[in-house]
Nucleic acid binder design. Structure first.
Lengths: 206, 206
DNA sequence: ATATTATATGGTCATTTGACAATATAGTCA
DNA sequence: TGACTATATTGTCAAATGACCATATAATAT
């Protein structure tokens, strides 16, 4: 966007400050008082701010707002920065190293019905799901074959790779070292229920 | 808060809708037009809304805003439910199964300076950090011995268990199966820099 | 039966507000 | 020098706005 002069920036900052303070757009006279100017000086400067695209006039009385153009140009302060390549001799969080900003929810693709389940046991460590991890689960009554899912087996929620077969369900662990074996459960045999698919995994380290 | 009548709720909703739409508090006449009323009917109802504490008058012209009292009473936009024990015969998300609600940021203990780094390679799979995972990194210039940290080695950010020793730094992988070996780097030898500690790990499954 | 509450309208009015014209000045650029 | 831009002021004004009064009515509470 076209840069602002010092004075224009000052007035623009006053407007933003007032908006941040109480969500209320200050009148030209309020701004003028703070800046020690006459109302019409502010009017003139606002004309430039509109002209340069920082403000838009929605029409009607007192209809001037921050423009979408300006809001879009703001550094996306929300979310967590993702660092890509790290350039030599630069601080890690230097602008050039940052690939973008994300919300963790977006990153994991979390929707409203997703819940977290704390994993117990080490039966899925080969898939990077460790004891104590949280898995994000999207509720579903069926599971795609080979997907990691949560099933309720004898009142216990377990996380396994699930294969639905003819008359049974295979629950495949992922821990070769410990030698867990695939468990086959007949639908008629035990009380088994598929709860949902695991769509993410997260862990806090200390 | 004292409940609103149907009409009061309607007007209040119109005000909230307009605020959500363009951040602009509608004038009484605008509201009246939408509701098919006279301006003064809206004025009366707004009187009630003020009286019941849903709106506050900041004073001055057109100074009415949503009250802090109302904003606080809003359903706390709860995060993601954490499911503990799953009771038999109950839907997973039944109230009794839910241990609580958390924001993922709180769960991972993320503060402002934390950033995400995408992990490349399988050198830390035994610690449940897989190729393609994101690790949350808290910037630090030193690392505690034995902690998983991010170091910058020859312009490449790598995730390893770090041990700072007398005149060298040991970078210990965690993948017995693949047979990665611990790497010892003399501080004088290579350009090595500790970037931060890994405080969390997250992964999206498809 | 009476009082109160909530809704609703018409009339009116003082203020606030943004807009605009006219004008001035200092700095920059051609 | 002259043109132009940005800043700044005074004076003025129409439109928008919220406030308040009087009034009406239906429902509800006492």
């Amino acid at each position: 966007m076209e840069p602002l002069t010092e004075k224009q920036q000052q007035i623009f900052n006053l407007i933003k400050a007032a908006l941040a303070a109480d969500g209320r757009r200050p009148s030209q006279r309020e701004i003028a008082r703070q800046a020690g100017l006459a109302q019409n000086s502010v009017y003139q400067i606002i004309r430039y701010l509109k002209q340069k695209g920082y403000l838009v006039d929605l029409g009607g009385h007192r209809g001037v707002r921050l423009s979408a153009e300006y809001l879009d140009s703001l550094p996306p302060k929300r979310g967590i920065p993702i660092v890509g390549q790290v350039a030599a001799g630069q601080p890690v969080l230097a602008q050039q190293n940052i690939e973008g900003y994300v919300e963790i929810k977006d990153l994991l693709g979390l929707s409203d019905d997703v819940f977290l389940l704390r994993v117990r046991g080490d039966s899925m460590t080969d898939e990077g799901i460790m004891d104590g991890d949280y898995v994000a689960v999207k509720p579903a009554s069926t599971a795609q074959n080979g997907r990691i899912a949560v099933v309720l087996l004898d009142d216990e929620a377990t996380v396994k790779k699930v294969y639905v077969q003819k008359n049974r369900i295979a629950l495949e662990p992922a821990n070769r070292a410990a030698g867990y074996k695939t468990q086959y459960v007949k639908r008629t045999d035990k009380d088994i229920r598929i709860i949902g698919n695991v769509i993410g995994c997260l862990r806090k380290l200390k």
